[in-house]
Simulated scan of single mutants.
Amino acid sequence: MSTVACIGAGTVGRAWAVVFARAGHNVRLYDAIEGEVTRTAIPGARRTLELLSENGLLTEDVETVVARISAAASIAEAVTGVVLVQESVREDVDVKREVFAEIAAHAPADAILASSTSAIPGSDFLGHFAHPERALVVHPVNPPSLIPLVELCGTHWTAPETLSEAWGIMTDAGMRPILLKKEIDGFILNRLQFTLVAEALHLVGEGYCTPEDIDAVLTDGLALRWASIGPFEVAHLNAPDGFQGFVDRLGPMMKRLGAAAQTDYDWTPEQVAAAHAELAERIPIASIADRAAWRDRQILALRQLKQKQ
C-alpha cells in the first residue's frame, strides 16, 4: 500500500487526507500547529467519511479508512518514502517556498510534489529546490473530499511524466482532473468563479437586484443546466445548428454585454456591509456550520444523481 503525505491539516488538507485514504493510500498528515491533526483534522475526516458512507459513496467501513490516516511530527517524517506530497498551507509565497524547500529535502527524488494553491502560479515557489521537474500545482475545489474536480498545472520546469503520473493518481483516487496548458493567475475555476462574483457585486451594488436574487438566478436558473453540461455545450444545444450558429446569432450581444460587465467593479465597504447584512439575516452567523453541512449533503445528493445518469 503506497503512502501519501498531506502538509497542512486545515479544511483543504484534511479533505485531501480523506480523498487519498478512501482510495487506499496510507496518509501522513502534518500541521505546524502542534496537536492540530489529532485534535481537529482526524475527527473532521471521520465526520466526512461518515457523511460519504451515509450517502453510499464509501465502499469500506469508516474506521478502516480513518485508520489509514496518521499524524506526523514533522515534514521530514511525513514525506519519507511517499509517492506524493500534497501541500495545503496558507496562501503566502514565502511560506510555500519555505515549506517546499523542506519537503524537497526529505521526500524521495521520484515523489510528486503538489501544491493546492488557489491562485499563486507554481513558478513563483516551485523552482527553487532540487528536481523542480517533479513539482506542479494540483488545485482542488474546496472540499475535495466532496467535489471531484481538480486542476493540474505545471510550471516550465515540470516534466510531462509528472503531469501524467499526477493525472493517474488523481483519477485513481476518484477525482476529475483537467490539465492547464500554461500557467495563469487563479487557474480556471477561480477565474470563472471570481469573474461571476465580481459582476454580481456590480449588479447588487448599483441597485439592479439583491444578493438573494443573484443566488436565485444561479440555483434556479444557470446551475440547473451547468450541473450537467457546461457553458460551451449549453450554447451548442441552444441553437439548431450548434455552437457556430449560436455565436453567429448572439455573438454581438455577448460582446456588448461582456463590455458592459464590470468585473473590476470598485465596490465600497458600505455595499459589502449591506450585502453581508442581508445574508446574515437569511443565514445567521451562528447557523453557518449547519448550513454548510446542508450544502455538503446537497452536493452528495447531486453527485449520486449524476452517477445514476
Score class of each variant (00 low, 15 high):
6 C>F: 01
9 A>E: 07
12 V>H: 07
15 A>I: 00
20 F>C: 02
22 R>N: 05
25 H>K: 08
37 V>G: 06
41 A>C: 11
45 A>Q: 03
47 R>M: 06
57 L>P: 02
62 V>Y: 11
71 A>N: 12
82 V>L: 10
85 V>K: 06
85 V>M: 10
91 E>Y: 02
96 K>L: 04
97 R>I: 00
101 A>Y: 00
104 A>V: 02
111 A>T: 03
119 A>D: 12
119 A>T: 13
121 P>A: 13
124 D>P: 02
128 H>N: 12
134 R>N: 06
145 S>H: 10
154 G>N: 09
162 T>D: 10
164 S>P: 07
169 I>F: 04
173 A>N: 03
195 T>I: 02
195 T>S: 15
195 T>N: 04
199 E>W: 00
203 L>T: 03
206 E>Y: 02
209 C>P: 01
213 D>N: 10
214 I>W: 04
214 I>N: 07
215 D>K: 03
216 A>K: 11
220 D>P: 03
224 L>D: 10
229 I>H: 12
231 P>A: 06
236 H>W: 05
238 N>G: 14
241 D>M: 10
250 L>H: 14
252 P>V: 06
259 A>R: 10
265 Y>C: 06
267 W>F: 14
274 A>Q: 13
274 A>C: 07
279 L>V: 13
284 P>I: 01
295 R>P: 05
297 R>S: 11
304 Q>R: 15
